[in-house]
Amino acid sequence: MSGIQESIIIRTVVRIMVPFIALFALYVIIHGASGPGGGFQGGVIFGAAIILYAMIYGIEDGKKIISDKVNRILSSTGLVLYAGTGLLCMVFGGKFLQYNAVPLFPNPAETAAILMDVVEVGIGITVLAVMVSLFFDISPPETEDDEMFPEEVEQ
């Protein structure tokens, strides 16, 4: 626990800011069709919110929000959502990822817009989960009895 993690100002500001950053990330994902944004950007912003929380409150507290198991499930869920949308188009007789084939709305362009939102959400979930798991894995463990870094080889 370093000095910056004990600072009451930083802890309070982070606790207040994290929900708003997450909300902004959802806005960026959903708004990707009609403005600047998209799945990759939103997923990275959401991941940054959780990484910020984990940086200040510790990796252990961060893993209480998104545990390794949830992470693994989420990172594959997004990919399945994406590929499932493509397969859904095949079920209705189109080609893979041919959104117009799904008879959701009378206007094929509207259907394409809705399915593209689903795809963006899938991308966002995968990117979020992978970013958080990268941070958790690459950052050194905080506990003393870690086995990740055996004592350095004497030279």
Binding site: A33, S34, G35, G38, Y82, G86, A112, E120
Partner: peptide, 27 residues
Amino acid sequence: TGVYNIVTALLANYRGYDTLGETTVIF
């Protein structure tokens, strides 16, 4: 495609297969 953002339209519709591969890369 029914969306205003041309970049999103290209990314998710015209180049959808490529973006699927992209998501696979990051996974």
